[in-house]
């Protein structure tokens, strides 16, 4: 199947996905659709490990829209028994699972040209890009924001050198934790953290979308 796709050039879903990027990103924060997401994986090795699940939700008008969310579980060929204890996703669980390829297609159809937001985004983006590569496709084209990096711009960050885990940010922002270490649960917490960061950054005046990217894009994506 992949060979057929390669022969014919880029598949339709990819063309549809890239088509969304013809539109220019608005500068008004309220007008931008952000997709906050998190992935659970079989491990931390981008090359060897695989996606287990993706949890994502959109933020539009600076509100989390539960009605516009995504929760995907991926069927496994590579399985790392060691991480089951963390994410709780078994190889053959009771959940409806998609093949990796289907999951990626669904994800692309969902994110469109939105600004992606994740905590320590580099890893999650790299996992998705690795999947795309296996499908013979280029990397994600979306702009990406990392809540770990954004947090350092806020007035709440005391030590700019430290890396802050999602747990630490939840504690700082006084967020009760539910469903940690599920993709959807972490995406939800990341979404709340994101709203709180934006609110904090807005205090010093009207915040534009470009302000969020300032000084952060240079760090690259791993």
């Amino acid at each position: 199947m992949f060979s057929r796709i390669l022969k014919r050039g880029k598949p339709e879903f990819w063309k549809a996905y890239t088509g969304h990027f013809k539109e220019k990103l608005p500068q008004d924060l309220h007008a931008v659709r952000f997709v906050v997401f998190d992935t659970e994986t079989t491990g931390l090795d981008v090359r060897k490990d695989r996606l287990l699940s993706i949890g994502a939700l959109s933020v539009f008008h600076l509100k989390i829209d539960v009605g516009d969310s995504l929760e995907l579980y991926v069927k496994q060929e590579v399985f790392n028994a060691g991480t089951v204890g963390i994410h709780g996703i078994l190889k053959e669980g009771g959940l409806l699972k998609l093949a990796e390829e289907e999951a990626i297609i669904t994800f692309l159809g969902y994110i469109k040209n939105s600004v992606l937001v994740a905590h320590h985004a580099a890893f999650d983006i790299a996992m998705i890009n690795e999947s795309l590569a296996r499908m013979g496709l280029p990397k994600l084209k979306n702009k990406v924001l990392d809540t770990g990096v954004l947090f350092k711009k806020t007035t709440l960050c005391e030590n700019k050198e430290n890396r802050h885990s999602l747990d630490q940010l939840c504690a700082i922002f006084k967020l009760r934790q539910h469903d940690r270490h599920t993709a959807a649960g972490d995406a939800f917490l990341t979404g709340l953290v994101f709203l709180k960061i934006v609110s904090n950054l807005s205090r010093s005046g009207k915040l534009k979308v470009s302000d969020l990217f300032f000084n952060s894009e240079r760090r690259g994506l791993l």
Binding site: K63, I64, L192, K196, S199
Partner: peptide, 14 residues
């Protein structure tokens, strides 16, 4: 209903 909730965050005086 829950599947369609929108969640907003407000700081003091927002």
């Amino acid at each position: 209903i829950c599947e369609q909730v929108k969640i907003g965050y407000y700081e003091v005086d927002d």
